[in-house]
């Protein structure tokens, strides 16, 4: 599809900032146009990576669940780690990836809370890896409009 979506967004951001915002009659309307430009910039960044970052994150969580299977002793949680860990994306549409992502993240919250209660080096190592994945997830999701 040409022109590239990234080219379209770049032009949209430029037009909102340079052509439209300065001509709007009030500071409030100008501010709204500049915010739309920021959102368009973010949408451009997300468009290219949307499927990739979701697939990467889902896979990272599945690896954590697999590792946890040797540490978690609670039968119910263990069963769900194995069941959800086998959950695969049936499509690479972003909405489908998001559905799997939400299921995995819900279980990751539960796993993290459980691991915090376990003693031993294995539990601490898994906990550290969960924190590392949290940090990695924020790196994957970072946008240039973010302040930190």
């Amino acid at each position: 599809m040409k022109p590239d979506v990234s080219v379209y967004f770049r032009e949209l951001v430029r037009a909102l900032r340079e052509d439209f915002a300065p001509k709007l009659p009030t500071a409030f309307e100008q501010g709204a146009a500049l915010r739309l430009a920021m959102l368009s910039q973010a949408a451009s960044e997300e468009f290219d990576r949307a499927a990739a970052r979701r697939l990467e994150e889902n896979e990272a969580m599945r690896r954590l669940f697999e590792r946890a299977s040797s540490i978690v002793k609670t039968p119910d949680l263990l069963t769900r780690l194995q069941t959800v860990g086998c959950l695969r994306e049936d499509s690479i549409h972003v909405s489908a990836l998001d559905r799997v992502n939400q299921t995995l993240r819900d279980l990751l919250i539960e796993l993290h809370a459980h691991v915090e209660t376990l003693a031993g080096d294995d539990a601490r190592a898994l906990e550290a890896d969960i924190w590392f994945e949290f940090s990695a997830s924020t790196a994957r999701r970072a946008l240039s409009i973010g302040r930190f």
């Binding site: 959102l39 973010a42 940090s135 924020t138 973010g146």
Partner: peptide, 25 residues
Amino acid sequence: PLMALAGWMQVNSQDRATLELMGRL
């Protein structure tokens, strides 16, 4: 659009700030 910006601009930064304070970033 300010409400949408709250989601796209702030949520991830706020999570990173949380990780930093917890020594996990």
